[in-house]
């Protein structure tokens, strides 16, 4: 799945973003990554997508290693990940349906399969009735659901969400968290990055990794699995 082995990332201008971070995300696990801003949460996500490589240590994701992955393999890895951002990153001139279909179009999916897969995924996030709306015609929570559907449509093994509720008020944020929990219940692993600790209590069973100044200062699963 995802394994960090003594991973450090140092930027020449801002110094260490991650220091000696080690953890192992297991299949089907729901993991919160929390900590104040600047703690290294986004760097951690970028390491998983191989947008950034460690300065030292190794990141292993779904059979690929940060030490040996080739540039042309990175797109293949990313097709196995679903990523959701705080700012939704939807294409403004395309409808919800088109935004989700876009992923399949650009990753070479079978044309005939696109429509049913898109509709099925939009239904899974509760947006069947708004498939033909533009992002500007949707609320913040709905836009984030479109983004989640877009992340899901390629059947990834893990959903990575970088502050997915950062732009939403608390009630809507809880709705969105519920969508992630539902998805996780169906067996997909979730990495939910948030600085909002109040969300954590709404999913008591989840694993929590706490970051501070690039270090993992707490891991609720560490006691069960010291090697992780």
């Amino acid at each position: 799945m995802i394994r960090f082995e003594h991973v450090s990332k140092e930027y020449s201008r801002t110094g260490f973003a991650l220091k000696n971070a080690s953890f192992h995300l297991r299949k089907g696990e729901f993991m919160f990554v929390t900590g104040p801003s600047g703690a290294g949460k986004t760097t951690l996500v970028k390491m998983v997508t191989m947008e950034e490589r460690p300065t030292s240590g190794v990141v292993r994701v779904s059979g690929y290693s940060s030490e040996s992955i080739k540039r042309r393999e990175i797109p293949l890895l990313r097709r196995r990940l679903g990523v959701v951002f705080q700012d939704f990153r939807l294409l403004r001139n395309r409808t919800a349906r088109e935004n989700v279909a876009f992923v399949l179009e650009v990753t070479g999916a079978d044309t005939e399969q696109i429509k049913p897969r898109v509709l099925r995924t939009l239904a899974a996030v509760g947006l069947s009735d708004k498939a033909d709306r533009l992002p500007s015609e949707l609320s913040g929570g709905e836009q984030q659901r479109v983004a989640i559907a877009r992340a899901l449509v390629n059947d990834p093994f893990v959903l990575l969400a970088d502050e997915p509720t950062g732009n939403l008020d608390h009630r809507i944020a809880l709705d969105v968290l519920r969508v992630f929990k539902d998805i996780n219940l169906r067996g997909m692993a979730v990495v939910f990055v948030t600085h909002d600790r109040s969300l954590l209590e709404h999913h008591p069973g989840a694993r929590i990794i706490e970051l501070d100044e690039g270090r993992i200062v707490g891991d609720s699963a560490a006691e069960e699995d010291p090697a992780a």
């Binding site: 997508t49 540039r71 042309r72 990175i74 797109p75 293949l76 890895l77 990313r78 097709r79 196995r80 990940l81 990523v83 990153r89 294409l91 876009f102 992923v103 650009v106 990753t107 070479g108 877009r150 390629n154």
Partner: peptide, 17 residues
């Protein structure tokens, strides 16, 4: 740039972009 960012994120091949 937004669209290309998304394409990169979801794993569109460089050649495709």
């Amino acid at each position: 740039s937004e669209e290309i960012e998304i394409m990169k994120m979801v794993g569109a091949a460089t050649g495709f972009i």
